[in-house]
Write a protein that binds this DNA or RNA. Sequence first.
DNA 1: AGCACGCCGACT
DNA 2: GTCGGCGTGCTC
Length: 665
Amino acid sequence: MASVARVLIDTPLPQLDRLFDYAIPPALADQAVPGVRVTAPLRVEGRLADGLVVEVGDTSDFDGALAPLETVVSPARVLAPEVWALARRIADRQAGSANDVLRLAIPRRSVAVERKWLERGAPGEAPRARYPIAGYEAGVIESAVDDAGRLALRSLPGVAELGDGTWVGRWAVTLAQAAVRAVAGGRSAILAVPDYRDQEQLEAVLHTLVPEGVVASLDARRTNAQRYAAFLACLDHPDEKRHVPRIIVGNRSVVYAPAAELGLIALYDDGDPLFAEPLAPYAHARDVALVRQQQQGGALVFAGHTRSVEVQRLVELGYLRDVGPVPLVTPKVVPTAAQQRETGPDGGRVPSAAFRTATEALQAGPVLVQVARPGYVSLLACRRCGQAARCTNCAGPLQLASSHAVPSCAWCGRLAGDWSCSECNNTTYRMVTRGSGRTAEELGRAFPGTRVIVSDGERPLTQVSGEPRTLVVATRGAEPIAAGGYAAVILLDGERMLQRESLHVGDDCLRWWSNAAALAAPGASTVLVGVGGPLAQALTLWQQHSYASAQLLDRRALGFPPALRVASVTGKPASVQAALEALENVPIRDVLGPAAVPADGPRSLDDGSVRAVVRFDYAHGDEVASALRGAIVRQATGGRRPPAGRRRGRPAPTLRVKLDDPEIL
DNA sequence: AGCACGCCGACT
DNA sequence: GTCGGCGTGCTC
């Protein structure tokens, strides 16, 4: 019987982010096993901290006398050994705390849910059926799953019908089948998708392939109790003797799911910004998946209609194998030059070629129109001089929520009923961009006898019927699936989407367009309005990987990620300075800044923060992370603290480090 | 975070 | 001579 427990204390303090040894009292000897929640005294007898037993043994490196564990909270082993290894590695890589990672990996405890789980017997039987995975070279995905292959998988465009009349993207069928292959081989699979609409598709397919208890869903749209129940469903019940393989589906944090004997970890559409974790330590799900596959083995699949620059880099390094459909399947995409616009009943927004395509296709089935912005009208400008209308309070852009609404500021929300132009004092404005609501009104007039359905970020639809004379207006990313596929897809706002200023606008647009085009019926046309050049070419030829490859070349030339890595260091000038000094003996490439912060938009202008961006090579990631981590710990312990009187508001960390922040630059 | 230890100014 | 200031450091 082990006498020493190594415990991770549940605390946000960076200086306590290590294991503490405790003596296991004889009374707890058979309960204090790796993975269970415990309470233990810390520093002062009488003060108890929560913690997790990471491992047990008979010796300790600690010089003093070990304090005894106080209690074992529950027999549920919520911290699986492989999840601990992953959390430790990710925390180190991101200059963060393992506790922060585990907050994403383990839901808060719910006593009632846990009791129910413990009382119930262990269910689950592995499916034996095998399904040939269609659309690719025979056996190529199967053997990758069987032999721990690493794939950059080009998903099949198009939609597929399940037995019960629901339709899903064909990508979902491929990934579900790959997961079933893993489970049939006795190992678990993790399938990570950007949002719940993608997740519903995967679940629908899996429902037709495997028995109920095999699939666990860990999505964030549920209450904590539901999430904890789903989490426990992934664990082997204490009474269960054998390991039950499962298919675990979820959003970005599912990459931390407890899955012993992992056969497959797959991400769909890894370029979607939803895979970037907004909570410390800000690890991207793609990176977590890469690390986990290295640690735990099994197959690794990045699937999607587009190729992220990050995955393309790994393909070109030979780390991932590029696998595409056989035979080749490509949607029919027609670019339309911008100048062909004619003024018509639609207000001149839809060029004649696209108009003809839509009119014709509406007789055969539903037509998808993809637009850029949600809501009604997003921006206003002076009717006389064209100057953009801005808030007098914070200079944010003014917007209109409905046709009769008073303009309001998009940033601070202030109403601007008394607006006048800052240039010419004119008080009348006009609309310069049109959202899905406005477009729906216009298109309804342009296509008489047509039913118009709107799907946007606020009210997204999952599925529409295959009825003809249905026009579906959707903002990018909120396109519903049409039964049988759309008879035509019109990508309307390409020009405007490209106007955003960002390092990866091109990648984002190509992703939005490709994902929409993938919803078309076989042989149906997709019209890209008003965009030419390499992006239009990549979409037309359905060669998104070529665009990613060209992007990678650009990034190399510019010294931007993912050609190299970056760390942003934000905080008070003195803290940032100290962090940069900690990097003095680390072979970084260079430091940009520290510059006065334009960091997080209009909110944080007055807090006096600065930000520096450190660029470094992949080979030196560990050194950079540990040096920055040192600076964080030093600043948490050494530095003088705010005066005794407690300050209002949240404590605003004086030093924040983000590695590989996709929003940087 | 808390909380104790530790080495310099006004006090019975 | 001591009581107590909060700067510095530790938490099994």
